[in-house]
Design a protein around this nucleic acid. Structure first.
Lengths: 212, 212, 212, 212
DNA sequence: CATGAATGAGTGTTCATTCAT
DNA sequence: GATGAATGAACACTCATTCAT
């Protein structure tokens, strides 16, 4: 069955977890948690089913690892933007939203978000992680910026959290559009273009008279 | 079993499918499709497991019925708004968004949306139904209004679909917030207040100079 | 595959648990707990594997039911003997030991004892049940008889519990001999004859000079 | 790793099998054969799982080695007693029984017996070994002594094997009591005291009138 | 119509055994 | 010799679906 001389398996302790998580991301994203079969994940990762259990205790643990791995690399971008305090509000926001659109385009944030949404009731812990480590942080940065800008009279008054959701919401909608609707025939969506246009509009609305 | 004097017609028989769908909605919404057990749905509907098969061929059929039932009553509201062509753009939009917020608050749109998102890969048919009967129609109405307003110079130029997504996105985000994050400890969200503030802001941004 | 006209299964809610427990006893006795396969038990009971779970939550529960079922019918015999207080000690003991030998010959006490011994560490609860409901009761009856006889000067002094174990021990040994050694070629053992000879000898030793 | 000045010869190499068998005894005794995990045995022996296979072909082989190792050291004691032919029967028996009680207290006969009982059906070979090398020999010695004593009129007539089982049975019962019942809360048992009292009683019963 | 006992294919998890290093 | 990563067959348990009653 195997090519002659090919080892039945390679000893790759360091690389394995990453490969498995990548395979799991693909299968979970496609099937959802419950419908994903460990057989499929193992096959896609090129290992036996038993090998999964060398690195992850249960299917849930593997799922959690997938979510965590998709989260962490994306935190930096958000945090960085928080530092640039002395730039004008509009400049920071524009950079941040476009960066977010970029990230949502190139990283598997969409599939993971879909999974978190889908499994939030069955695995509240995941939703909690997602909230604490992604949503709350991102929203914290945004509301901080907005409140500071409001204090300076740059931004119209109003609940800062609502403003933040108004900034982000269309991006989320775009991501879900791509995940859910495009595969069933809906027109594709240029997330970056959506972000650019949205930020123009919303800034036009947000910026107080004096802020323009 | 029924109290004497009960209406002659068998209320139960006609009501059964509706009761089952309602029970199924509750269980699907809570567990997701795969993790929902027909035992639980039957128990919640107060019927035997076998009875489910008198009305629905498979679990998927039942799921489809749930989605359809949750969709149809909400279509009217959208259609109505489409007719009011001669009112100013801002007035129509304000009414439409607030109506949508209301609907999202009182009807199970949230749970159903969550399910559609979750199962879109496994049951593309559902996503298609959702797209064709909900999203496309709603978006069609909105883009129509926007394009007409752009033609009149009321609304700033730009891709009408993007504008529509910018209008709706924050509402979707609010709904998902309530479905996913509030249950795990995130601050609750007043969807109507979010809608009101968002519509103010976005209209301020959308309306062209001359349109104000 | 099935004979024409034969129903695929019969509805036998009342009979099933007993049939399953009987099948389980046979398989557990033969293989031990861990090596027993539910497939085999189901096949022997003439039901599907799934049907087992209609009556027993887990393999352990089924095992516990087997032990309990083997225990309860045997309690009566012990209790009865306790009542015959006014007969001479030797008469009671003779009757009791021979009765015990009879019971050990015709009921599955041997296999069950073997199982309890084997699985005592993994399922202490079973050993506890066995102790409380079988051993302690039996020993309580015996020590009570012995102590009363000692008080009357019928039986030589000494720890009553040790005397009781000396009475029972050879029977247990005989049972285990039949379970463990006879199947691998050891000479078969007439448990009743062993009991008769043992009770003669031990009574000769136990009875005090005045008691003979 | 080893302290300087350690003997030149590799102590480990020769000791390994013994260490593994000792670890295996502990784990098998605690869990039973099927539930014992080679991982645990390896860990307890301080070697890798793979190393087990350098010394034993299969789990069964290891199990057999455990049984054999527990058996052999105990054979001597029995054989010795067989030689002391010219002492009175009572003296020999008293010594032999008390020696057996001692052995059962300090050596792992109890756990091993439990295992043999438990696995006799699945590994008849073990039961055979146990029978041939332990039970048959011990019983042979005892029945020889008894028959000789009967011939001399020292011991009452009757099946010598039954007499032997009556001598040993209570000790076996004591051992199993300690293995099975004491761990689940039954009163502890002084095996030596049980042996002393039992031998007094049974000898009183066994010894013919003239033998006293 | 309605029931619920019964089915059996499907899947997560375990663990004795192997073998490249 | 020794390691421990990897395997894969085996098994307990689940649950959508069926059908005699």
């Amino acid at each position: 069955m195997l090519p002659v001389g090919e080892p039945r398996w390679r000893r790759r302790k360091e690389a394995r977890p990453g490969e498995i998580v990548a395979a799991a991301l693909a299968v979970f994203a496609e099937k959802g948690f419950a419908a994903a079969r460990l057989d499929d994940i193992a096959a896609r990762a090129g290992v036996s089913k038993g090998a999964l259990y060398l690195y992850f205790e249960t299917k849930q643990d593997l799922f959690a690892a997938v979510v965590r791995d998709a989260i962490s690399p994306n935190l930096a971008a958000v945090e960085v933007a928080a530092g640039a305090i002395n730039l004008p509000f509009a400049v920071i926001i524009r950079a941040l939203i476009e960066q977010a659109a970029e990230m949502m385009t190139v990283s598997p944030v969409g599939p993971v978000a879909k999974m978190v949404i889908a499994e939030s009731r069955n695995f509240p812990e995941l939703a909690r992680v997602w909230h604490d480590e992604v949503v709350a942080r991102m929203l914290g940065v945004l509301t901080g910026l907005i409140e500071r800008a409001q204090a300076k009279g740059e931004v119209r008054p109003g609940d800062a959290r609502f403003h933040a959701l108004a900034l982000i919401g269309p991006l989320l909608m775009g991501v879900l559009w791509r995940e859910v609707l495009t595969p069933v025939g809906a027109a594709p969506l240029d997330l970056r273009a959506l972000a650019r246009q949205h930020v123009d509009t919303i800034l036009a609305g947000l910026l107080a008279e004096g802020g323009r």
